[in-house]
Design a binder for these strands. Structure first.
Lengths: 225, 225, 225, 225
DNA sequence: GATGAATGAGATTTCATTCAT
DNA sequence: AATGAATGAAATCTCATTCAT
């Protein structure tokens, strides 16, 4: 199906077809349960060709992770508004990019989120590298916001790190939820999901309840009153 | 060796030994990569006995999930303070119970978090059932808080659900982080982790920065002003 | 055929059956061309059982080499006459044992002679160890004979080693020839072959032609005049 | 890289490059383990070209055997001194040629000695044909010497054949030993090796010990006293 | 209650070989 | 003359699972 089964394609094209198929199958079955047979068939080629180009199941999986991680990071980067924008707006735009991308490539996201983390060493590191990049970005935003606000309680580094992890974890969880909210309800748009998370994380539940939700505001520092 | 290898134990005991071994191996290797041989060996029994008691790899895995899920829910339930406590305190106590449990049984948590979700249908549902129970609990807490506060913006059900998912996702992420924060830093206690998440979720980052962190307050409604 | 195909045999027995089959197939096809399928079938068991007991093709091959090498060395040792016998008689008796054994187990000999030497490192060493044992024995005999004779030209160590290698090489070659002399001629007995080699090696072609062949003589030092 | 990788060479040259590469790889890996890929790469050409010229792995291997066998026989023939020379001198000169050649082309010799014999029917015959040529030559020399000497015991044909086989086997064994004597000792020259074998075979160990080694003597009949 | 013996089915991987250009 | 693209067939090895005792 992915393969257009036309014979004699240049190597680069075939490779992408194989990666497409592999991502689909890995997402559907999991790393171990996925069989090279099925991947090859979905890619519309013979198994030996997959080995000729990608060398082994492990390398194939790694290649998938790298491709999908790169695509995700690129999408987020492209979405983030420039440096001189206030931190909350930067975060907000980044989240929109993130949710848009995960909605668009659910299989890719599944491979990253469900498989890469779960299957031991060569892979965890590759995934961790990407995650770290995002966590770092978020950490910097939080730190920047703290700076601007003359943050009173003087957050310790570890606390900042913990908060960034909580935020990223929440985003990851929401990405899954947004692709499949229970009850057959229809899916929230990337924008809605991002707004939800901004309210949760930036404003805090208490504020939210007292009628002071976070709200995107032009390119000035975000503050409540 | 979990098995104490003494012969002729009553069935119930042997079964628990097998489940212990299975949880360890499933956590370490993943569902597919775990071999019944290794599990039987670690349990200190022969393979046919495992089959006699647990019937198949699938059922064994299911049994693990059910046991660990039940243990986790029980632990959280036991930790939550009673109904008449203000919602934020209930959440706070529940989170402490959650993080304490995941820290105490990392393998059990790994099986639930990493494996159950990742390996297709019989299992996802079993995990989802437990998660739903917790999400529901959190949802009710949020709704209750909204009620008390005369929540102005009138949160839609879907929003509440989304917020609960974000919170649970953040908690899950932090459970992993708390068991292994980067840089070889030492692990935060369950209490610290819970506090971190409460600040993130309840107060919101903005409040945090302006010197108004969330803080456990006696058994009265949590409010800032 | 080798397997007697009766089910449920004790492990030790099955293992010997497998080694029997393996030796036959390795001799017939060569190490690489031999397939585990064929070996298992000839042994009358399923392939997994072969792996369960012998672990891998490599280990199976090693086990064959070790078993056959040990059998050969044992046979030669048992045949050699005791220390106080003159060297030429010791050699003569050892050669008879050698040719008798190689005639009796042609497949075993083929595995040692044709396969072990030819297929790289784990194996060459195992074969070399056995060969060295025999070469050493021959070397000592030659040295002993030299001593007794007050050997005039004072053979250098390297020369002795070379002579021993030549003798062993000749024996190895004759073992093949004795099992299959050209022209469909019938096979010489072990005794005949040993005599041939003794004449060649001990007396030398020149002596032979001038009517002074080597001849087994009672248990006194071998000497011509 | 044997191939000089220059494009567009005449067929004959390309073929020799391929055979060179094939001999190297077959010697190093063995027939089965050698891959056409590796051979083509070492030859500096693409695989289809190898097939275009040599048709199949089997034919390629056969071609190697034939080329190396022919080269060896040619080398030995060229070295043997003419008919009117005494038999022992003829043998002596032939052996020098043999050892010189095997030392000069160890890979070629390895293919003949280790691989050709070991890998079943099309090949054994090709090797056997060459070996037979040499055995026949040696047989004639022995017979000639017997004639000259008025050989007393009247050697039977089979005995002569056996002796020739023993001599050739010893030579083959020494060729291996001369290319790699143990202990990292340095290699004996072709001349030394040939002398060693002449002593062993022609004089016999007994003579040797009593101070009557064989010695190349001018172009008159070899005899001891 | 417990286990040593055994296997059917299927996984990854390799290789000789051929088209189409 | 030469090659990049592609494959059918088979190899080694693993694993969940079941008898027979």
């Amino acid at each position: 199906m992915a393969g257009t089964k036309g014979k004699r394609m240049p190597r680069a094209v075939r490779e992408q077809q194989m990666l497409d198929a592999a991502v689909t199958i890995f997402a559907r079955r999991g790393y171990r349960a996925a069989s090279m047979d099925e991947i090859a068939e979905l890619a519309g080629v013979s198994k030996p060709l997959v080995y000729l180009y990608l060398n082994s199941k492990e390398e194939l999986f790694s290649a998938c992770i790298r491709r999908e991680a790169a695509a995700l990071v690129t999408a987020v980067r492209a979405a983030v508004e420039p440096r001189d924008t206030p931190p909350d707006r930067q975060l907000w735009s980044g989240l929109r990019g993130f949710f848009a991308h995960t909605a668009e490539r659910p299989d890719g996201w599944a491979v990253l989120h469900n498989q890469a983390r779960t299957h031991g060493e060569p892979f965890v590191s590759e995934f961790a590298a990407m995650r770290e990049e995002i966590v770092t970005f978020v950490t910097q935003l939080i730190a920047a916001a703290a700076q601007e606000d003359d943050c009173v309680p003087d957050l310790a580094d570890r606390e900042v790190a913990g908060l960034a992890h909580a935020l990223v974890g929440a985003a990851e969880s929401l990405a899954g939820w947004a692709n499949d909210p229970g009850d057959g309800a229809d899916r929230p748009s990337a924008k809605e999901t991002a707004a939800l998370l901004m309210n949760f994380a930036w404003a805090g539940l208490a504020n939210l309840m007292e009628g002071r939700p976070w709200h995107p505001r032009g390119r000035t520092t975000a503050r409540r009153s």
